[in-house]
């Protein structure tokens, strides 16, 4: 059983890591977190289903189109919920409320369009494989493989392209980045798109395992946040490690202690890390400028 729990834990941990990376991208560029991130995850899934069912698009096209719309929704969020409050007061945390509101709107729109029933989502692969003493769904392995590829791609983008370096530059010092001719507005837009895409893809990956409905994202926001904070907000390695820790701990607790406690693990980690080490495992302590 242990092996199965570990595989499940790593796979789910990878999903939390993707959501956590999404938190990081907007935290880098805007110092904000999107409290509607789980709803972006849900939006990509339900939009794919909608395009497939009602427009009769084949799945691959429906999915690509859904991701494009989700990315566009990321840009809308910046324009409607973030820019106005930051313009009014750059220090304010009003974006917590406005992005949350945006998420509730998205969720309720989804309920209006899709109802509250659960929709099946096609698996990438059917069947199971025998790994030592565990029977593992192929879908799980596929999800894991795709997550690894995505994390690697994310790393390549951030560390091996000039655009990625520019994102880091804007994150580090916006004015210095502008002094190099980097258009920080454009970078901010890019980070919103990345956030939406990371969440959306995470949603598409888990949709076959959990079945799709308008409330599928809510818990993911919290767990992705736990992953990001556990690893240290702003640290991509931290988000991945944090995601894996939360994912594995969840499966072990759910498997060996009580399935009902599974979803509490993220909160407990969040609580403990905020008391013990608010900057997270990989975060740097930042002194406030006086």
């Amino acid at each position: 059983m242990l092996l199965l729990f570990l595989i499940l834990g790593i796979t789910w941990g990878g999903i939390y890591a993707l959501v956590g990376l999404g938190f990081n991208t907007t935290f880098w560029t805007l110092r904000i977190l999107n409290f509607a991130q789980g709803e972006y995850l849900m939006a990509a899934v339900l939009l794919s289903i909608g395009f497939n069912r009602w427009v009769n698009l084949p799945w691959p096209i429906a999915i690509v189109l859904a991701l494009a719309v989700t990315a566009a929704l990321g840009l809308v969020l910046e324009r409607v919920a973030i820019r106005p409050v930051l313009q009014h007061d750059p220090r304010s945390h009003s974006w917590v409320v406005t992005t949350l509101g945006a998420g509730i709107v998205l969720q309720n729109l989804a309920v209006l369009l899709f109802g509250t029933s659960e929709y099946p989502f096609p698996k990438l692969m059917e069947g199971v494989v025998q790994l030592l003493d565990a029977r593992v769904e192929k879908q799980l392995l596929a999800v894991f493989a795709i997550t690894v590829v995505l994390v690697v791609l994310f790393d390549i983008f951030v560390n091996r392209t000039l655009m990625g370096k520019a994102i880091k530059a804007v994150a580090f010092d916006r004015m210095a980045a502008e002094a190099q001719g980097i258009n920080s507005r454009g970078i901010v837009m890019l980070s919103m798109i990345l956030m939406a895409l990371l969440a959306g893809i995470a949603g598409l990956l888990i949709a076959p395992m959990v079945s799709a409905h308008p409330y599928m994202g809510t818990l993911m926001t919290v767990k992705g946040f736990s992953a990001a904070v556990l690893g240290g907000l702003g640290s991509p390695v931290g988000a991945i490690v944090g995601g894996l820790v939360v994912g594995i701990a969840e499966q072990l607790v759910g498997g060996y202690i009580n399935p009902g406690l599974k979803d509490a693990i993220g909160l407990i980690f969040l609580f403990v890390i905020l008391i013990a080490r608010p900057q997270g495992l990989f975060g740097k302590k930042v002194a406030e400028r006086v």
């Binding site: 409607v80 919920a81 106005p84 409050v85 009014h88 009003s94 409320v97 406005t98 949350l100 509101g101 945006a102 998420g103 509730i104 709107v105 998205l106 969720q107 309720n108 729109l109 309920v111 209006l112």
Partner: peptide, 15 residues
């Protein structure tokens, strides 16, 4: 539509 109304209020009232 109650939830939608709450969401819109949170999204827009601060602005």
């Amino acid at each position: 539509k109650q939830g939608l109304v709450y969401g819109l209020i949170l999204l827009l009232s601060l602005v």
